[in-house]
């Protein structure tokens, strides 16, 4: 029973959504709207669950004084700090438990939550992702040393796209006469993006969509039930 009712619920929820696509009239349209609202609310709680799991994992490391436990403590402190700031004074134009926090805004220039977001989270995420620029260079080198026709194709198209999107690429091939302009790097980069790239991306999209449609049907029909977990 603990497994059958969830399977029936998943089937009914999926069936309703699909039926509404083909019957865009009441009561289906209303039911789908309601179900979508419910989906947002339950998904919100599931994110809370994920964060609780993160805190639980950090708590275990801190309480057992595992290796590098101090860093995990800083993670929890950072989490608690931004949550408290967001809860007390809100974010952007949303009021918190203490209202809009005019006093603290006049002191900080913006709400504490937004101040932390702008001055800590934005620099941290931008720098973390910009760090990948260096590792991508080493990945490119590794791809270069694998001398196969496929890897050469990959690197040649990458180099054309990179150069074609910079002023240097334009400068390199600007001498090519207009009648052969397809060989100018910016034009060639556009050609690659517009045709071979579109073809491959389309093949990936079509193949992936077939896979997703198949697995979605398996879930709705109750064939795929691994999301229910164990038999307890």
């Amino acid at each position: 029973m603990k497994r059958n009712i969830p399977l029936i619920l998943a089937f009914l929820a999926g069936l309703l959504m699909i039926a509404s696509e083909f019957i865009p009239h009441r009561p289906f349209s209303n039911m789908v709207e309601t179900l979508e609202d419910w989906f947002m609310i339950i998904a919100g709680f599931s994110i809370v669950l994920g964060l609780a799991s993160l805190l639980q994992m950090n708590y275990q490391k801190i309480s057992t004084k595992a290796e590098n436990w101090g860093y995990h403590l800083s993670c929890v402190i950072a989490f608690a700090l931004i949550v408290i700031m967001g809860a007390l004074w809100g974010m952007e134009d949303q009021p918190g438990l203490l209202g809009q926090g005019e006093k603290i805004v006049s002191w900080l220039g913006k709400k504490p939550f937004d101040y932390t977001y702008d001055n800590a989270l934005v620099p941290l995420s931008a720098t973390m992702f910009s760090l990948l620029a260096f590792f991508i260079a080493s990945a490119a080198y590794r791809a270069f040393i694998i001398r196969t026709f496929e890897s050469n194709l990959l690197m040649i198209s990458a180099v054309i796209v990179i150069l074609g999107r910079t002023g240097f690429g334009t400068m390199l091939t600007s001498w090519i006469p207009e009648s052969y302009r397809i060989w100018q790097l910016p034009v060639l980069a556009d050609f690659i993006m517009e045709y071979p790239n579109t073809a491959a991306q389309r093949a990936i999209l079509i193949s992936a969509s077939l896979g997703i449609i198949g697995s979605s049907l398996r879930i709705i029909l109750g064939i795929e039930r691994s999301y229910l977990g164990g038999d307890k």
């Binding site: 998943a10 929820a13 999926g14 309703l16 959504m17 989906f39 339950i42 599931s46 879930i219 229910l228």
Partner: peptide, 13 residues
Amino acid sequence: RYPLSIVIGTSAA
């Protein structure tokens, strides 16, 4: 499992 099944069923559809 009950809320999860609704979320999974809806998102699958």
